[in-house]
Write a protein that binds this DNA or RNA. Structure first.
Lengths: 241, 241
DNA sequence: TTATTATTGTAACACAATGATACAATAGTT
DNA sequence: AACTATTGTATCATTGTGTTACAATAATAA
C-alpha cells in the first residue's frame, strides 16, 4: 500500500482508472449480537460513506472489489458478492463530492472526472469481526464499525445501498449457506443461531434450528467444550467445506 | 425511432452516451416447449450477439435497458431484471468490434470510444413469444429467436452471459413467481408445467405441480375449456396479481 | 459431597408440505 | 355406446418443520 496507489485516494488526473464507474462495498461484521457495517468518514467533512474505490484500467471489477475490501479490513480470502449496480441519474450529486475534494485540499475544476456522473457497482462482504482491522485511507478521518441499526446519515444513496445489501444477504443466508463467513473459526450452536436471528430479525426455535443445521452435514463437532457459566457446556463447531 | 437515435446504432462521436458502459439483454421467450433467446446479427459480419445498447447521459440504467428490450421486441411493460455486471478485463477484444464497425461502413480510428474497454450490465427479460415482434436495427442483418439449445457462437463473452442469465432465471423461477411472464395471457396447467420443466430441465409430477400452483392463489380459473383432441379438455388459467 | 440452577442436546409428537399412486371425469373418435 | 387419451383430484406414504418435554451436564452453593 506504500508504493501502490490506494483505491480510496483521490487521483487528480484520473490516470489509470476507468471513468464513470466506482465500487461501493457493504462490509458486514457480527459482534455482540449485532450486525455491523464498516463506514469511512471523509477528512474534515463529517461526511460518512461506504468504503469504495475505482477500477484500474487493466483490472477485473471483481478484483478491484477484493482490493477495496482488503485495503479497509486487512483481510484476504473474503466472502464477496456483487449484488447490484446503482445507475440512476439522480445519483449524480457533484456538490457533495466537490465538498469532499475541497476539504481534502483540492480545488477541482468543474470538468473534473470525479465530478462527472458515476455508476456504482455494489458488493457486499462478510468478514470475521474478530480478525478485521479497520484501516482508513489517507483521505479519511476514520474507518470504523457501526451498528446497522445505528448508522450515521450517509452520502448519496449509500443508505439505500446498505439496505439492498441487507436484503440480498437475507435472501442468500439460507440457500447459499454464507452465514459462517461472519463467525470466527470455532463457534457454538448458540452463536450461529444468534447470527441467524440477527440477520433475519426474527426468533428461531432452538431444537428445530439445531436439527436443521446438523442435518446439512456442513458442521464438524469439535468434541471440545466451553467453560462458561453454571450450566451444561455447548459443543464448539467448525464449518467444513 | 426515426428521429431518436437507436441504442444499437453506432454513434461515431459517442456524444450523449456514457462511455465504457454498455447494456446486454438476454431476452427469453417460450415456444414449442423450447426456451428461446433473441439474438442479433451484425451487418455483413456473420457475427451474432445479444441485443444491447448504451446509456444516455441523462438516463437511468434500468430505463436504458427497458428501451433496448422495447426496441428489439416492440413490447412495453416487460419483466426485466438486472442480474450481473460483467467487468473482466479479458472482455476487452477490440478486434471483434473493429470488424463490426468496418463492415458497417466505418473506419474507426484506434482511439475510438467503442474500441476502448467496456463493462456490460447484464439484464434478462421474460416476454410473451406470441406478442414479441423481433425488430433489427439499421446495423443488423437480422434479429431473431434461437433455441437456447441451438444458438450460434456469440461474440465476446455473450454465451457466458446467457448462461448466467439462465442460472438466475432458474433460481428465481420459484421464489419470485416470474414464469408467467413467458406465457400468453391465458394458458393451461399443462402449458405452465411444460414451461417449468423446460426452464428447470427436469420432469415434474403432474399432481404435485397442479396442487402447488393452485395453492399459491395466483391463478384464476377461467371456467372456459379448450377444444382439442379425444380427451378431457383442460381449464384455461390467468395469473392474477 | 450433594443439592441447585441455567443451559444444552435431543427425543417425541403434531402438523404441514411434498412425492407417488390411483381413479373418476371427460372430449373427442370409432 | 364403447374406446382412448388426458385432465382433475383423492388418497396415502414420506419427509420436513413447529412445538413440547426432558435428560444431561457445568458450574455454584449448601
Amino acid at each position: 500500500m506504500s508504493e501502490q496507489r490506494e483505491a480510496g485516494e483521490i487521483n487528480p488526473g484520473g490516470l489509470g482508472y476507468l471513468k464513470g464507474i466506482a465500487i461501493d462495498a457493504v462490509i458486514f461484521g457480527f459482534h455482540d449480537s449485532q450486525l455491523k457495517v464498516l463506514l469511512i468518514e471523509y477528512k474534515r467533512t463529517g461526511l460518512f460513506a461506504l468504503p469504495g474505490g475505482f477500477i484500474r484500467e487493466l483490472e477485473n471489477i471483481n478484483d478491484a472489489a477484493l482490493r477495496v475490501v482488503s485495503e479497509r479490513t486487512g483481510l484476504d480470502n473474503i466472502f464477496l458478492d456483487q449484488f447490484y449496480i446503482f445507475g440512476d441519474y439522480s445519483r449524480y450529486q457533484p456538490d457533495e463530492f466537490k465538498k469532499i475534494m475541497s476539504a481534502g485540499g483540492m480545488a477541482p475544476p468543474d470538468g473534473h472526472w470525479l465530478l462527472q456522473r458515476f455508476v456504482s457497482v455494489g458488493y457486499y462482504a462478510l468478514v470475521d469481526f474478530t480478525r478485521a482491522k479497520p484501516t482508513p485511507a489517507i483521505i479519511f478521518d476514520s474507518c470504523e464499525w457501526y451498528d446497522l441499526t445505528n448508522m450515521p446519515p450517509l452520502i448519496q444513496d449509500h443508505t439505500q445501498i446498505v439496505r439492498k445489501a441487507l436484503d440480498t444477504l437475507r435472501a442468500h443466508l439460507d440457500d447459499k449457506l454464507i452465514g459462517f463467513n461472519l463467525l470466527p473459526e470455532e463457534f457454538t450452536m448458540g452463536d450461529l443461531q444468534q447470527l441467524y436471528e440477527t440477520v433475519l430479525d426474527k426468533k428461531l426455535l432452538r431444537p428445530a434450528f439445531q436439527r436443521k443445521m446438523l442435518s446439512l452435514g456442513i458442521l464438524e463437532r469439535l468434541s471440545k467444550k466451553f467453560s462458561g457459566g453454571a450450566h451444561k457446556a455447548p459443543y464448539l463447531y467448525r464449518f467444513i467445506k
